[in-house]
Design a protein around this nucleic acid. Sequence first.
DNA 1: TCAAAAGTGTTAGATTTACACCCATGA
DNA 2: TCATGGGTGTAAATCTAACACTTTTGA
Lengths: 225, 225
Amino acid sequence: MTTFYHEFQKVLLSVDCIIFGFDENKLKILIGKRQMDPGRGEWSLYGGFVRNDESLDAAADRTLYELTGLRHVFMRQVGAFGNLDRDPGERVVSVAYYALINVRDYDDRLREEHGVEWVDIEDVPELYSDHNEMVRQARKLMQRKMKTEPVGFKLLPDLFTLTQLQRLYETVSGELLDKRNFRKRVKEMDFIEKTDLIDKVTSKRGAALFRFNKKAYKEDPNFKL
Amino acid sequence: MTTFYHEFQKVLLSVDCIIFGFDENKLKILIGKRQMDPGRGEWSLYGGFVRNDESLDAAADRTLYELTGLRHVFMRQVGAFGNLDRDPGERVVSVAYYALINVRDYDDRLREEHGVEWVDIEDVPELYSDHNEMVRQARKLMQRKMKTEPVGFKLLPDLFTLTQLQRLYETVSGELLDKRNFRKRVKEMDFIEKTDLIDKVTSKRGAALFRFNKKAYKEDPNFKL
DNA sequence: TCAAAAGTGTTAGATTTACACCCATGA
DNA sequence: TCATGGGTGTAAATCTAACACTTTTGA
């Protein structure tokens, strides 16, 4: 292969994943103690280096798969982080991605094997390098995305109650929502379908279970929550 | 310096700039014919390689400075572009940045020396590699930013008329605005100050010139257009 | 029987949109 | 004198936000 840019310097490229989950009415992310130098033992996002035979998106997918065993997960790029001093080892530029998963899809045994934990986004400790900044930006992007596109369902089981959905939106946006107004808006979105199944776990009376109909959404994408 | 990550592959990193200007009621960007192989002669964004002694942001600033001689320009990262086939030469990952400048600040002679031209965003030709996609994303981010933060002024002279401002917002958003409603909203933003200067160039009657007061904005940042 | 969550409509207030005419001036 | 762009207020319509009680059932 011809080399065109031989006079220019190359850098190490990594990806770091901000993996969001929703559990116990809390928005959480996965972090673990760093298992390599430099920074061994510090809290950190899960990441990996980009190979020369994969795109950035593919590197992010692979990294997430290594950690969770999950494929076809909703992921979006947060951005590239390239301050000179960001890695105490040598220069590494990192591209952050956020992912939305249903915590139930991530096997707890596998999680423990990788030494990562779900921590409340409100209680994230000081992280390695610039990872706190990555989390901040990821959270902001994710908040904005959730307002305008129906991606919140990726954080919930396939079947969910309206109260679960409301709690999710309240937690992510950080403000309490009016139950009646919330349900009114849900009712206007035909792609949030009521099933005839009843959830009897979280309430005595039982609550109707709903599901997100992706196909119906594509036909009439008028999301607003 | 200790090398920690010796076993991992490095990649070439570049930055590409989407430089927006507003002139003749058109939103424009700077593009030029590529002057190096591969892709010599194709229309392209202006870019450069990231050095090992500068951050990504610094590389973007430097690249913009090389082209325009301007410093302290409003720039924001668009994102990292890392498809395997994006550069026909060898693998290059590029981080795109968009910038907002006042076209009058860019000396036309200097512009010609660099062989770049202002082209209407609506008439951008096919560009080298994935540059059209970068432009698309940059435009979207810039549109969103302009709705919620007072960055549009960076595309205008220090003194501007309300009609100029309205045309700018119409062009960027792609929809016509009602003159009275527009002015009503401007009036509510105290940081858009009326001066006692009159522009007699664009109208016979003369139009009041306004300026953006950054300090006043910081004290009461209630921007909405 | 009572605690706990599910479910359901209406109204006031705020925001947004639509709309038309007179003014000043240079050509 | 007339063509051009500058400048101004009101009212209808839409959207948003506030609000309280009844139902079901497991413990």
